[in-house]
Design a protein around this nucleic acid. Structure first.
Length: 566
RNA sequence: UGACCGAUGGUGUAAUGGUAGCACUGCAGAUUUUGGUUCUGCCUGUCCAGGUUCGAGUCCUGGUCGGUCAACCA
């Protein structure tokens, strides 16, 4: 039973389908493929997965789930030069982490190499493929242009017998790289460049990460992808728009091979503003040291987002909201940030931390004294319980929460002003201490002992409540404050002679030292917190008990920042 | 200058030929011991020109704009 036939009348949300779901439901109505829905996620293991892949993963696995079907994980590993097990492993980890399960259906195109070889021989014997001795440049030159037809290869009319023999010798390693290729015999005058006798096999004497040195000829994408789909009886082969022009070829091979007809459907890939999604460019950022690896929290990779503190739930929610369509689109990163705030608001334990400490002394509080206070672990979740922590005479507050000469809309602490210390007392600033350079080093306040949180005196209204950490109890911590990696909405929009790297935001990583309230041990990697009023943070894997390191996932929405920047 | 694909608020995405809806963003207000959350309200949209029809975002024709395609990458 699938959701779409289960709808309640008036349940508008589940009634709106994307265009792929429309196709699938029509196929089901028409009894196509015995109403089977079988998709696949087909990454090439030549890089790390990014948020754009997450969209595709959620689509493919999501569709299978929705229509009670299956989704395979298949590595499209037909190019030994660029692929590696490192990438295979990271991709598997990322898909699993996102919450999807391919069960026993983990496949590799390389597992089908023998089958592809047989397919090729079949086409050769049918007179639909031939071995061509032209080199890359000659083939390219003969292919023509989109507006001019190409020329037929002089080797085009070799006999099937000769072709079979030549192809066998290619496999046997008789020829050097690039010396010969196997081409489909289609139409050199086709308006579709991909139909102009495309290359099916090329000679690459290189070790493959799975098949080792067994092969020295490798199928191209066009002669591997659709064939793999067909072998796996994929019903809906979903890919991105740039493969649209390949579809006639995809269908040509299936028809000539007389194999199971998978259907290719294209959708628009995800683009995010202030972000690049090209694998090549991401690799450049890694290789040239602009970031600290594929899992740098500023990277749009799944591993980067994970280390940044994103949750699978947030990413899946994001993938759901961006929608599926055929028009090119650029999603606002604000939507991604919204989904992680939404998820973490429900889940994250609240704690107080100060990232830019300013000493505050409560002059009328007993010297050496302290007391214990209590606060909810998560106000959104009453069942989460409470935590206890200490208050004392000397505290740290956020430097931003004090201004000597406050502008009109500034509600926080200032000379002569009152604010509430969250979960503690109302205090009033009575003095400001500066060093010889004029920098504020300390502020003096008095507190009102009648206003302790939870007591009747605490109900007095003040303009603002600020967070703090008790200085003698404070635990030093490092905070990595991330900002967007690029300062331009479209990082590729650069002046002549420059590239996307000139759009990099020099301030994308700020590391600061501050304090957190103690009592949070043990801190496990990727544990998530909301530091009240600051944002959501997670524990970085390099963190130690002595020196916790937090990555800021995202700030809280900040009304004051907006006012301030006007 | 060819073929193919696409075009709905600022950004995305819906709407058997029948009231253009939803989300994000932005703005305004209410609530609030997080300038958070929550709640309420508001702004802004069918690329253009014709045609078919009682009725067009939807169908047809022509244009405009954008994208893709000339790797032995995927």
């Amino acid at each position: 039973m699938n959701k779409s036939t289960n709808k309640e009348p008036g349940d508008k949300e589940s009634r709106s389908l994307n265009f792929i779901e429309h196709i699938i439901e029509e196929d089901i109505r028409n009894n196509k493929n015995e109403q089977r829905v079988h998709t696949r996620f087909p990454p090439e293991p030549n890089g790390y997965l990014h948020i754009g892949h997450a969209k595709s993963i959620c689509l493919n696995f999501g569709l299978a789930e929705k229509y009670n079907g299956l989704c395979n994980l298949r590595f499209d590993d037909t190019n030994p030069l660029t692929e590696s097990v490192e990438f295979v492993d990271s991709i598997k980890e990322d898909v699993r982490w996102l919450g999807f399960n391919w069960e026993e259906r983990l496949y590799f195109a390389s597992d089908y190499f023998e089958k592809f070889y047989e397919f090729a021989v079949f086409l050769i014997k049918k007179g639909k493929a031939y071995v061509c001795d032209l080199n890359t440049e000659q083939i390219a030159a003969d292919r023509g242009t989109p507006t001019r037809p190409g020329n037929e290869s002089p080797y085009r009319n070799r006999t099937p017998e000769e072709n079979v023999d030549l192809f066998r010798r290619m496999r046997e390693g008789e020829f050097k790289n690039g010396e010969r290729v196997l081409r489909a015999k289609i139409d050199m005058a086709s308006p579709n460049m991909h139909m102009r006798d495309p290359v099916m096999y090329r000679i690459i004497h290189a070790e493959h990460h799975r098949t080792g040195n067994k092969w020295c000829i490798y199928p191209t994408y066009d002669f591997a992808h659709g064939q793999s789909d067909s072998i796996e009886k994929i019903t809906h082969s979903i890919c991105t728009l740039e493969f649209e022009v390949h579809r006639p070829l995809y269908e040509w091979f299936i028809r000539e091979l007389e194999i199971f007809p998978s259907r290719q459907i294209e959708f628009a890939r995800l683009e995010l503003n202030y972000t690049i999604m090209s694998k090549r460019k991401l690799m450049q950022l890694v290789d040239e040291g602009y970031v600290n690896g594929w899992d740098d929290p500023r990277m749009p990779t799944i591993s980067g987002l994970r280390r940044r503190g994103y949750t699978p739930e947030a990413i899946r929610s994001f993938a759901e909201r961006v929608g599926i369509a055929k028009r090119e689109n650029v999603i606002d990163v604000a939507l991604l940030e919204h989904t992680i705030r939404e998820d973490l608001n429900k889940k994250a334990t609240r704690l107080m931390a100060v990232t830019d400490p300013l000493k505050l002394v409560i002059t009328n509080y007993p010297e050496g004294g302290s007391e214990e206070l209590e606060a909810p672990l998560n106000p959104e979740d009453p069942d989460a319980g409470t935590r206890k922590f200490s208050f004392s005479r000397e505290l740290y507050i956020e430097r931003d929460d004090f201004m000597e000469e406050p502008p009109k809309k500034f509600f926080r602490l200032a000379p002569g002003r009152e604010v509430r210390l969250k979960y503690a007392y109302i205090i009033k600033c009575v003095d400001v201490v500066k060093d010889s350079t004029g920098k504020i080093t300390k502020i003096h306040c008095v507190y009102d002992p009648e206003t302790r949180s939870g007591t009747p005196g605490s109900t007095r209204k003040v303009k603002s409540t600020i967070h703090w950490v008790s200085a003698p109890h404070a635990k030093p911590a490092r905070f990595r404050l991330f900002d967007r990696l690029f300062r331009k909405e479209d990082p590729d929009d650069v002046e002549e002679g420059k590239d996307f790297k000139s759009s990099i935001n020099p301030g994308s990583l700020r590391v600061v030292e501050g304090y957190i309230t103690p009592g949070t041990d043990p801190l496990n990697p990727l544990d998530k917190f909301q530091f009240e009023r600051l944002g959501y943070f997670c524990v970085d894997p390099v963190s130690t008990c002595d020196k916790p390191v937090f990555n800021r996932t995202v700030t809280l929405r900040d009304a004051w920042a907006k006012i301030k920047n006007r």
